[in-house]
């Protein structure tokens, strides 16, 4: 089947199988390999992207369900070569180590602060329930999201 969707500001038409996952379309069909697949059971959140503004685990959404939607992946966050404030905050606060969970963490954080511009530490930690990081112990990710939220508030 053919579907059309907007990915990172670009209209894309793709020929997919009915069982193609959004993560597979992004990674294999569109070569947007920043979206990572790490657990196969919707636990880890490395595949998180924004679909119509909401963070979604793209390994758990059929690509067909994203037909007509606006999708933003980690590749679509930086504008004109400048890091998005949340990306910048992860850099500033050392919120990443091996980098594999990072795209999902950043996308999830962007959605959090869109709905809750000034989240408490507890709210951030609760929000990150669906994102697993094995390297950082989360502490600097939490710090980064606090800092990213502050930067976005003052932007």
């Amino acid at each position: 089947m053919d579907i059309t969707l907007a990915v990172n500001g670009r209209q894309v038409t793709a020929s997919i199988e009915a069982n193609t996952l959004l993560s597979a379309l992004l990674r294999e069909g569109l070569a947007l390999t920043g979206t990572h697949v790490a657990c196969d059971t919707s636990q880890c959140g490395a595949c998180t992207v924004l679909v119509d503004g909401a963070s979604v685990k793209s390994c758990t959404l059929l690509a067909a369900e994203a037909a007509g939607a606006t999708v933003v992946t980690i590749e679509g966050l930086a504008a004109d070569g400048a890091l998005h404030p949340m990306q910048q905050a992860f850099h500033d606060e050392h919120g990443l180590q091996c980098g594999f969970c990072t795209p999902g963490m950043v996308m999830s954080a962007v959605d959090l602060v869109a709905g809750n511009p000034d989240p408490s530490e507890a709210e951030i930690r609760a929000w990150l329930k669906g994102n697993i990081c094995r390297c950082t112990g989360y502490q600097n990710i939490v710090k980064a999201i606090c800092a990213g939220a502050a930067a976005l508030r003052s932007a």
Partner: peptide, 21 residues
């Protein structure tokens, strides 16, 4: 010092074996 490697990971430009075709 902030990490030199961060930018590629933060922009989805990391290159893991998963990503290589």
């Amino acid at each position: 010092l902030r990490r030199k490697e961060d930018r590629r990971f933060l922009t989805g430009r990391g290159r893991y074996v998963h990503d290589i075709v």
